[in-house]
Amino acid sequence: MSELPEMLAVVVVRERALPRGADEAVAEAGGAVLLCGTGTAAAAGQLTAATRSWTLESPVAPAALAAALAPLLDAVRVVLLPSSPDGRDLAPRLAFATGRDLRAGATRCDTAEADLVRLDDALEVRVRLTGPSVVTLLPGQRGVDHPTEPPTPTDLTPDPRITSQSAPGITSQSGVGIRGFSAVVRDAEVVEVVEGGAESVELEEAERIFGGGAGLVPDGADGAAVMRDLGEVAAALGASAGATRVVSDAGWVGHERQIGTTGAVVDPRLYVAFGISGATQHTGGLGRPEHVVSINTDPSCPMTAMADLGIVADAPAVLDELARRLLGSRDG
């Protein structure tokens, strides 16, 4: 096979679908990418930043994948993964399997150093990469400068005619095997796959988002309960629930639900803002929604000014009425 470069993006593919941030990781790695998982050849054709690509068709199991990838990465100094769910699962396994340092949560990376965010994105630190490293790159940070025509990938999947006569392949305790690589690894056993609804979708991937601000929580109210109500109403309408920094700082939702330049950067088709005034920090993370609805008592607030539809009303009262109509959980 052709020699792998000093810096390489590794992207986990499921059924030909690329994770969010895949092209950004490829661009940060200079266009070099190794795709592993299922439907890798088709996924390679969807990349817009790749100039060199390799594929390894295999089941998606982090321990088995790490063991299979480890011997292929000897010449690679920096392995860069998008900070997607599969990327975050594979990165520590791969770091352990290859004896590399793990640097998680990067906004920028090259072969010499990486910029990492810490303390809930309040601090960015620059670290020197003194040896071979595994780095995860946060999505929504880089973009792709010059889209390219996807190259023909080089297939690294072992020939089954050879492997059937030689090594039995990697076997994990969950029964997942990758033929052609000799190892025994421990992997999580899949007990059940539960189809998630819109409320479980990561904000960065949601097409509809209901956002809650401080104006959604009346004085003396249980903020966490109000935000749970918002999540239930959002789910009933096929949307995910997000929040402003004030709400997440108060502990009413997890930080992963915070929208803004110091939280999740989103780009939904529809954004409905409940009691959100529209501070620059928040609107800077909204991307370019096709439709914005603002529910606020202040008709002159920035969020209402940028909305396609501004509803001048008490946000808690509107949420209560929606819950009553959609969930039957309110009297009146």
Rank of each mutant, 00 (worst) to 15 (best):
A95K: 11
P160T: 02
L203F: 09
V13G: 04
D86M: 13
G87Q: 14
R257C: 03
D314Q: 10
G254D: 13
Q165Y: 02
L73W: 09
L81Q: 04
I276E: 06
L286K: 01
R14S: 12
P19M: 03
L138P: 00
E124A: 15
E113W: 14
A67F: 01
R208D: 06
S174M: 04
S200A: 15
G131L: 06
T171V: 09
P151D: 05
Q173G: 13
L216I: 07
S200E: 15
A114H: 02
A206D: 07
V266W: 00
G105S: 03
L90W: 12
P139E: 13
D155E: 11
V185G: 04
T98I: 05
G212I: 06
S133N: 14
T157H: 08
V135Q: 09
E192A: 14
E195F: 03
D267T: 06
G238A: 03
G231H: 13
A234V: 02
A279P: 08
V266R: 05
R93D: 11
L327I: 15
V185M: 07
V12D: 01
L47W: 10
S182P: 02
E232T: 07
V127H: 12
T163R: 04
S83M: 09
V194C: 14
D23N: 04
S294K: 02
F274C: 03
S182V: 02
R16W: 00
S166E: 08
D308W: 02
L203D: 09
L216D: 10
D187K: 06
V78R: 02
G251C: 11
R324L: 07
R93W: 11
L203S: 08
S172R: 09
P82E: 15
G238Y: 07
E124C: 15
V226L: 01
G285C: 05
E113Q: 15
G21K: 13
S174Q: 09
G260Q: 14
V226D: 00
L137Y: 13
A91G: 08
A235D: 14
G310I: 09
R100A: 07
L47N: 12
S172D: 15
S53L: 08
I178M: 06
P158F: 08
C36H: 00
A234T: 03
A167D: 09
E290I: 00
P150Q: 07
M7S: 04
L18M: 05
T154V: 13
G143Y: 11
T152D: 13
P153M: 01
G212R: 10
P62T: 02
